[in-house]
Nucleic acid binder design. Structure first.
Lengths: 342, 342
DNA sequence: ATGAAAGCGCTAACAC
DNA sequence: GTGTTAGCGCTTTCAT
């Protein structure tokens, strides 16, 4: 077993309380006691054991993070933001993924709670109907949603305004002259954000008197390939939409590849607009048009908000708030002006 | 304070020992004691507190992960692999990033050790000269390196053979007729892998009697932009290398963008070969040639190896081993055949 | 099958 | 400024 403050105390010839004091408020210890203790720590290679401290304190200075998958860059960046902000505040981060499986959310959270994390940052399938969130509310565990943007319920969250962002993107396409705009998404039931973006798309279409065709729902939210029947639609110039609005950038880049594979050009034959604004999209040729969300900042702000809730619980009386960060429509070569008369 | 087994015991009218038994080996408890306890657990909303358990057991069923940054997809995927494998084994994951700062490595590890993680998976700046790893060795903390491939020292690691992989990639370029092959890398001093890849590059060049120009070292390992003076080299067709070998895919994609920006075409004017094989590279047009490493598998194998070391410490007598996973040279349109006579 | 009790490492009264 | 001690939640010997 590794040395505890007990052996340090013995080695230094002081009591364990003095050792503990040195560790916590060094000023309250006499100069020579301090030096003896420091020497003992050195000799023994002592490291404080947070387990003991945490048990005693009832806090762990650790936050949990639950997201669908790190295969999607946005979540990786968000986690990176959380971690950076956490480290600055001497918090540690425990990480879990759910692979977009709603049933894994509660298990993930239960495990984190067993570890007695002080709070949780998470993205759930559906923020308005989540038994997992209900548990957190009931047990008064501080938490902050990321990417989710609850509509019916007052829940602490950090995201962009998904509907408005999608609306902006699609409006932009319409202003460029596109009228046949098709939405492409992962499964709506696995992502409330995707559904909100669909609503924004629908609204923009409606406002301009355009018909919104049934969206193409693809089995996965990452690297999905178009089915043959969907590809068939694109093969036919008379059926083909002039622009594609995708629920995220991975899908957008995938579909661009699929379109190339059947001989279509982006943006000449089909324009493509993504969502997320992942950094790699800017390196593409043509550059991917997208509505960018500040993922790293989302993570950082979520962490700050969470830590505030942890450390100033009295402020919890204030109603849980949705924090919206600004989105940006980023224009790239993947979208072209659509000339009606060409 | 949340309920402990003490309140559960009280509520169920049994001793805390019986509650603990039910939690750990349910068979050793009588049927009606079990039902009373389960009911009490339900009523109180009891959750076991791992802090107490861990303190007692001296183990945490938690592993730490330390990588440079999640902004580079490879590390995100690796972490994803670690997490998936950990979850299957009921381990939790504590995550930290170092931003490629060697001086942050020891602090990160110290924090994880204070949390009493059972072992650590990490990527360090230089695996052969790392005081952090020395600490781990000295304190007999199980650990496994990922991406690092120690040369002088026997250290447990999981990676591809960086030198051989780079050698393969460059040999491939040479076979396609390239003779002026320039290497582009992040700072070597911040990444021993990059240096090993450089050695593989050098070796391939030497074997074919080609001269290896001084590599271009870029300040960062992610999304680096070429400096003006470097761009100048590319502007001049007589100075211009015919192919660029990059130490990672992010750099490769960045430089492709920079080349496009000054009017050069890939692969017509310059061929580009990356390293890592990130999934998004396959979605590029032209598709990014790269030597792919199985990042998610690296993470999974590292976790398995680590858990083995944690749970079967006696096997630790066996010499620490380097585990090499196979790499694949992935060919894409970013590299062209170079015809001497054109 | 069950209970009593010790102790994992640490902090915070409390006493001096 | 320092020591003594109780106790955080839990597991596990040792009795019974």
């Amino acid at each position: 077993m590794r040395p505890s403050i007990k052996q340090v105390a013995l080695e230094a010839g002081v009591s364990i309380a003095t050792v503990s004091r040195l560790l916590n408020k060094p000023d309250s210890v006499s100069i020579d006691a301090a030096s003896k203790i420091n020497q003992a720590i050195e000799v023994l290679g002592f490291r404080p054991n947070f387990t003991g401290r945490n048990l005693r304190a009832g806090r762990s200075r650790t936050v949990g993070v639950v997201v669908p998958t790190l295969s999607n860059t946005v979540f990786a960046q968000c986690l990176q933001g959380v971690e950076t902000a956490a480290r600055q505040r001497d918090y540690s981060v425990m990480f879990t993924a759910t692979e977009y499986r709603q049933e894994d959310e509660s298990a993930a959270v239960a495990l984190l709670l067993a570890h007695r994390v002080d709070g949780i940052i998470l993205t759930v399938t559906n923020a308005d109907a989540s038994s997992t969130l209900d548990v957190l509310e009931r047990e008064r565990i501080p938490y902050v949603l990321v990417y989710n943007q609850p509509q019916q319920t007052a829940r602490p969250s950090v995201s962009v305004d998904n509907r408005a962002a999608a609306h902006d993107a699609v409006t932009h396409l319409i202003h460029l002259g596109h009228t046949r705009i098709q939405m492409l998404s992962g499964q709506f039931h696995a992502s409330d954000r995707a559904l909100q973006r669909y609503h924004g798309y629908q609204q923009a279409m409606r406002e301009h008197g355009l018909q919104a065709p049934t969206p193409i729902e693809i089995p996965r939210h990452t690297y999905a390939a178009l089915s043959l029947e969907h590809l068939q639609i694109f093969r036919d110039p008379s059926q083909r939409p002039s622009a594609l609005f995708c629920s995220n950038d991975l899908l957008a880049l995938s579909v661009m590849r699929d379109l190339r594979a059947i001989g279509l050009r982006v943006p000449d034959d089909v324009s493509v607009m993504g969502f997320d604004g992942i950094p790699l999209g800017e390196l593409m040729d043509p550059m991917l048009s997208s509505v960018a969300q500040p993922s790293e900042q989302i993570g950082e702000l979520a962490l700050r908000t969470l830590v505030h809730a942890i450390e100033e619980p009295q402020d919890g009386q204030a109603p849980a708030s949705t924090q919206l960060l600004p989105h940006t429509v980023r224009l790239g070569g993947s979208v072209r002006t659509f000339d009606f008369h060409s």
